[in-house]
Structures are given as structure tokens and as C-alpha cells.
């Protein structure tokens, strides 16, 4: 086994060159290059996480804006609804007023007409009474040859007309 057979001759050379070459590996590669490689990895990881955070922030902002838009939209819609309702109410009130005015006009016309009819009827009645009075006086003078005064004739006429 050369490892043991040559131990005395070679151990110092083996130890020396191991130290030299492992030392080169450690100082040149381990200390010199590995931190740079890891720094690159760290930078990349940072960039990725930053990008992800940025994307998340952008999405949050978009959500916020959408929410604001929705709110505004809802408000606008409610406003429009209110406007429509108001217009409707106004129109309804206006037409009601117009209707009421028309009704009133009609009512007064009707009343007037009724009053006129009443008056006409009273006049007609009075004329009928007068005619009946004269007729009664005439009839009585012709038949009985007596004149009756206006008063008794009127009361008789009234009596008879009350049954009409």
C-alpha cells in the first residue's frame, strides 16, 4: 500500500502541495469568485421579488381604481334614478293640477248651468202661475159672472199647482 509504504518519503510533499492547492482553491475561488456568484443570485432574487411586489402593487392600484369607478358609477346611477323620479313626480303633480283646474272649471260651468236652469224653471213657473191666474179669473167671470180678486185666485192656483 503506497500510502503507508511511501509515507515517510512523501508526507511532507503531500501536505505541502495539498495546502498550496487547497489554499489557491479557497482564496482564489472560494473567497474571490463564489461571493460574486452568490451576489448575482441575490441580485436576481431581489429583482424577482421586487418585480413581484411591483406587480402586486399595480394590481392593488387597479383594484382600488376599479372600486372607485364602481362607486362613482353607482353614485351616477343613483343620481340619474333620482332625477327620473323627480321628473316623474313633477309631471304627475303638474298633470294633477291641470286636471284639478279643468274639473273646477267644469264644476263652475255645471253649477252656473244648473242655476240658470233653476232660474228659468222659476220664471217659467211664475209665468205659468200668472197665465193660470188670468185664466182662472177669466174662466170664473165667464162661467159664474163674478169677478174674483187676484188674491183668492192666486191661492186657488197655487193649491192646484202644488199637485203638479
Amino acid at each position: 500500500m503506497p500510502q503507508i509504504a511511501q509515507l515517510l518519503d512523501t508526507w511532507s510533499s503531500q501536505v505541502f502541495w495539498t495546502l498550496v492547492f487547497f489554499g489557491i482553491t479557497f482564496f482564489l475561488i472560494g473567497r474571490g469568485m463564489v461571493p460574486k456568484v452568490m451576489e448575482t443570485v441575490g441580485l436576481r432574487d431581489k429583482q424577482i421579488s421586487d418585480d413581484l411586489a411591483g406587480a402586486q402593487a399595480a394590481r392593488d392600484a387597479a383594484d382600488e381604481q376599479e372600486e372607485a369607478w364602481r362607486e362613482r358609477e353607482n353614485a351616477n346611477r343613483a343620481q340619474a334614478q333620482a332625477l327620473i323620479a323627480e321628473a316623474k313626480a313633477k309631471a304627475a303633480a303638474a298633470s294633477e293640477k291641470k286636471l284639478a283646474a279643468a274639473q273646477k272649471r267644469l264644476d263652475t260651468k255645471l253649477e252656473k248651468a244648473e242655476a240658470e236652469i233653476d232660474a228659468a224653471r222659476t220664471n217659467a213657473m211664475a209665468e205659468i202661475e200668472d197665465v193660470a191666474l188670468e185664466a182662472t179669473q177669466d174662466i170664473v167671470s165667464r162661467l159664474a159672472g163674478t169677478k174674483i180678486d187676484k188674491r183668492s185666485a192666486r191661492s186657488a192656483v197655487k193649491k192646484a199647482l202644488a199637485n203638479v
Binding site: D9, T10, S13, W17, T18, V20, F21, T25, I29, M33
Partner: peptide, 22 residues
């Protein structure tokens, strides 16, 4: 004794290869 042996030569090759790889 610090003779440059075949062992040392292969250590050197190893270092060069690792250095190249990295």
C-alpha cells in the same frame, strides 16, 4: 521534501478545472 509529484500535478489540474468551471 516538497517534490512536485503526480499527486501535486493532479491537484493543480483540479484547481484549474474548478477555476475554469466557476
Amino acid at each position: 521534501n516538497i517534490a512536485f509529484t503526480n499527486s501535486a500535478l493532479w491537484m493543480a489540474i483540479t484547481v484549474v478545472l474548478i477555476w475554469g468551471f466557476v
